[in-house]
């Protein structure tokens, strides 16, 4: 059993690592009460997905996808890089809007703890 699992594990360890990081981020998003921590969780989640994409582009013996003079060189897949460049910008934008919201929430309520917010809303 171990013998069959282990090679698989090693063959795809990058993906499994990405999954673990994703789960950490997702857990932080759901379970953490602090709004900033939620956004950090979101960022971890997104970064893990980037890792997942990027590592899928790798090729054994591949080099960066910039044309070299050596015709025998093997290039890694450039497309995931492009996608992730876009996705990073999206993630940054989302984070910016989220943080702006947190600032406004802090101004309005004086706290950014979820349970305190819920308590204050219940009182109103």
């Amino acid at each position: 059993m171990i013998e069959t699992l282990l090679p698989g594990l090693f063959l795809r360890y990058n993906y499994y690592m990405a999954v673990i990081i994703m789960l950490i981020g997702l857990y932080a998003m759901i379970a953490k009460g602090n709004l900033i921590k939620k956004i950090i969780g979101l960022n971890i989640f997104q970064t893990a997905i980037f890792l997942f994409y990027i590592s899928s582009s790798d090729i054994i013996g591949g080099t960066a996808p910039i044309l070299t003079s050596d015709p025998a060189s093997v290039y890694v897949n450039p497309l995931p890089h492009v996608l992730i460049l876009t996705a990073i910008v999206v993630a940054v934008s989302t984070t910016a809007v989220g943080l702006a919201l947190v600032i406004r929430i802090y101004e309005a309520y004086g706290t950014i703890e979820e349970d305190e917010l819920i308590a204050m809303e219940a009182k109103e």
Partner: peptide
């Protein structure tokens, strides 16, 4: 002012949803 909190909740949920869609796209691409 509750609109801020509801917007934040919407943002978090919306981002999670977008992340899952991105994951789905990634798997299909791979």
């Amino acid at each position: 002012k509750r609109s801020l909190v509801s917007s934040f909740t919407y943002l978090v949920m919306g981002s999670v949803s977008a992340c899952f869609i991105l994951l789905g796209i990634g798997h299909l691409y791979i």
